[in-house]
Nucleic acid binder design. Structure first.
Lengths: 141, 141
DNA sequence: TTTGTTGCAAAACGTTTGCAGCCTC
DNA sequence: GAGGCTGCAAACGTTTTGCAACAAA
């Protein structure tokens, strides 16, 4: 499902409201087309672009609950996020030494995971992370 | 590889030192046998058990780099951690509504992921997360 | 008209930094 | 003996809280 649809549906289901702020934040995240942190959002919106810090925090939480955005456990000081729709098209490979993250495709695993059926649990997305050491870091050792 | 071996090897390779604090922290994490947050460690060590806040922070970072511990992107305010060795035996299923996390087994996917070969990238661990809605939350809607 | 949402400011909290002294190796 | 490691305290920055005004439904 598209991110905008998800938002509309989630708001309706939970009797929440459509606001300019939510819409603008989602637009930005869609256009951004990549990984981002809370700082990315704050730096863009808080100083000049009409959305206060508080709304950024609160609405990012909402996007997470609504499955519009996923959270990635990348190393480093900042938790990173990505549009769920975008994250569904690839997985991530992470160097535990330098923190470098690469996207890769794996249709086999994707299909296998999508075929799972759990009792009473409805799957929406799945994420795979492969940890290891990249070539640059291997040379250093 | 066992966690303790990993630590020894990592320390040697990076010319770092074995200390009581590192050893005690690893012991605790092994005995704990589950998910934990920084608070879990701080609450145990900082007040009474002889390891200062600072060493907890610094050594947890080291454990992450040494692949002794992995970080999980579970919803909620706290980033969670788990002994890598333990995390290798199962994957995680997460409810995006209430944040409940269940462990599940999937040898097929595990084998498939382990069989991957990347140019210049040496895999150490892999993690799979399945997001969705659990039965309890479905009833509420 | 109701009630969710925003934005502000202040407070609370978690994390980092700098440094002196200690302890591995 | 050299240099990594610890612990303290202060500084820092991020996130939360409470509340009044606003606006979507």
């Amino acid at each position: 499902m598209k991110a905008r649809e998800k938002l509309e549906r989630y708001l309706k289901e939970h009797e929440l409201r459509q606001t300019m702020e939510r819409s603008a934040m989602l637009d930005f995240i869609i256009r951004l087309d990549g990984h981002f942190s809370i700082s990315t959002l704050l730096e863009y919106f808080a100083p000049t672009n009409h959305i206060s810090k508080m709304s950024v925090y609160r609405n990012l939480d909402l996007f997470l609950k609504a499955d519009i955005v996923v959270m990635h456990p990348f190393p480093g000081d900042m938790v990173m996020y990505e549009l769920a729709e975008r994250a569904e098209t690839h997985y991530h490979r992470i160097c535990t030494q330098c923190g470098a993250v690469k996207e890769f495709h794996d249709t086999k695993t994707s299909k296998l995971l999508k075929s799972h059926r759990f009792k009473g649990f409805t799957m929406t997305t799945n994420q795979v992370y492969i940890y290891g050491i990249c070539s640059k870091c291997k040379k250093k050792i």
